[in-house]
């Protein structure tokens, strides 16, 4: 599973980080690092919950091979 990150939409709510700090890595200001996230196997549910927590809709769950 992959999490697509729209870095321009991130406003530093850190709701993803609160649920899954090992998956959603923040910079020193508290904003998500740019670049899509490959979710380690076994952590899909946690990653999905983190993505669904974003108030700005900056995170979307995508299939690993989804090139779009």
């Amino acid at each position: 599973m992959k999490i697509k990150v729209d870095h321009t939409l991130c406003q530093g709510h850190a709701r993803c980080y609160a649920l899954a700090p090992a998956i959603f890595i923040l910079d020193d200001a508290g904003y998500i690092l740019p670049g899509d996230i490959l979710v380690p196997e076994g952590q899909e549910v946690l990653a999905q919950r983190g993505a669904r927590a974003c108030p700005e809709r900056a995170l979307a769950v995508a299939d690993k091979d989804d090139a779009a």
């Binding site: 609160a18 923040l26 200001a29 508290g30």
Partner: peptide
């Protein structure tokens, strides 16, 4: 950018 680090989660 100046103020965010002062009140970041960490």
């Amino acid at each position: 950018s100046l103020l965010n680090p002062l009140l970041s989660p960490k």
